Simulated assay, not measured.
Amino acid sequence: MLFFSDAALLLVLALALDALVGDPPALWRRVPHPVVLFGKLVEIADQDFNTPDAPERRRKAYGVVFLVALVALALLIGFLLEAILRGLPFGEIGIVLVAAIFLAQKSLYEHVAAVRDGLVGEGLEGGRRAVAMIVGRDPRQLDEAGVSRAAIESCAENYADGVVAPAFWFLLLGLPGLLAYKAVNTADSMIGHKTERHGAFGWASARFDDLVNLPAARLAGLTILAAAPLFGSRIGACFARMRRDAPNHRSPNAGWPEAAMAAVLGLALAGPRAYRGYTVDDPFMNPDGRRDATAGDITRALKALVLACALHGGLILAVALPALLT
């Protein structure tokens, strides 16, 4: 396994590569993205073992067994891949390349910016089409403010679980930790829903995803707060709002980056939302903020994202200093 400072140095390089290159579409049109492969395994398990006529207890047990098998497989692949790469000349470059594949700074920025551009260039329908690519809620029920809030919430939440969390687990456990995290996160995104079909089978995936995201979600919230002065807010006041509102979110993790972003931008985020097949009646994050978000607020959220990513990378660089100085 990689030493902590060495892993931090490789992670800084992976973050820099991801920020510059992102996910090249031409590459993933030719070969499947590893996350897509994890998704195929989840899809197969969902079809074969999550039979609607099975008792709920059995479906929950099958979901637990599947999750354990998925995590074990991801850990094994990560361990073998890291061992092979470390045994090769300049194998650290390969580790950086693999790690960068599972980070999502540039792709997140581009997907959120596409919602803003859709609203500006094509109006509400353009915004709805773009936001449907990054959120699970029903876009037909969103007005311009709803589309904008959905994009901003996705920006905050996916910064936590698409950037900070995979970086955190790579830093702790190298490629095995990174691949295992992405496998769990993929399973949660596909079957970790409180619906009639997935409430039992996806229970383990949802709960374990909550657990592995606990530290990263809070770190993500803290780094987002650094953008407060850009928008005329005080970091201390925003921190107090984040601590007040985040525990009220239906998710034990998403509330932290969302509450931080809401406080920084002066918006009310989260609140009641309609998804495909079910609705949630959640309290707002920063309930005294504006609810009439616009495309301009998406631009402000993207600026906060860039600053948060820079601070996050700087913190990891500080951890990497011992490896740089030896």
Rank of each mutant, 00 (worst) to 15 (best):
E110P: 09
G118K: 00
G126M: 08
I101D: 04
L80W: 15
G121R: 08
V184T: 07
R149S: 06
G177R: 11
G177V: 14
R197W: 11
L108K: 08
I191C: 02
V184Y: 05
T186Y: 15
Y109M: 02
L85F: 15
A104R: 06
P176F: 13
G202Q: 02
F102E: 01
A180E: 09
R116G: 01
E144L: 02
R86M: 14
A217H: 04
R86N: 13
Q105K: 12
S154K: 03
A113L: 14
A113Q: 11
Y181C: 02
G162V: 13
A160R: 05
D117C: 03
A187H: 09
L81K: 09
K182E: 06
A104I: 09
W203N: 00
I77Y: 15
A183T: 07
G118T: 04
G199L: 07
P139R: 09
L108Y: 14
H111C: 06
T195H: 10
A99H: 14
A100W: 04
L171M: 08
V135E: 09
D117V: 01
R207E: 01
A187V: 04
R149W: 00
L211N: 09
G78I: 12
E157C: 04
G118Q: 02
A160D: 07
L124N: 03
D143P: 10
I93V: 15
K194D: 14
C155F: 08
G123Y: 02
N158S: 12
K194H: 15
G87K: 04
C155Y: 09
P166L: 10
V147D: 00
I93C: 12
A113G: 06
P176S: 13
L214Y: 15
L108D: 05
G162H: 05
G87T: 13
R149P: 02
V184D: 00
N185K: 07
V98K: 14
G202R: 00
F90I: 06
G136A: 13
V96C: 11
A99Q: 13
L124P: 05
D143C: 08
F79I: 04
G136P: 12
P89S: 04
A150M: 10
T195D: 09
V212H: 05
G126P: 10
P215K: 03
W203S: 02
E125I: 12
H111R: 14
D188H: 08
Y159Q: 05
G146R: 01
F102C: 03
L179P: 08
D143K: 01
G146L: 01
I134R: 09
A165R: 00
A104W: 15
A114H: 03
A156G: 06
V131I: 10
D117Y: 01
G87V: 11
F102Y: 13
I93N: 12
H198A: 01
D188Y: 06
I101G: 08
R149M: 02
V112P: 01
E125D: 15
F170I: 05
V98L: 14
R128H: 13
A180R: 11
A183F: 08
D188C: 11
V164A: 10
E157W: 06
G174W: 07
I84V: 15
K182N: 05
F170E: 03
E110T: 10
F201K: 00
A145D: 03
I191E: 00
L214R: 07
D143G: 11
L178W: 11
A187W: 10
D117N: 09
A206D: 02
L178I: 10
V164Q: 09
G199S: 12
L173R: 12
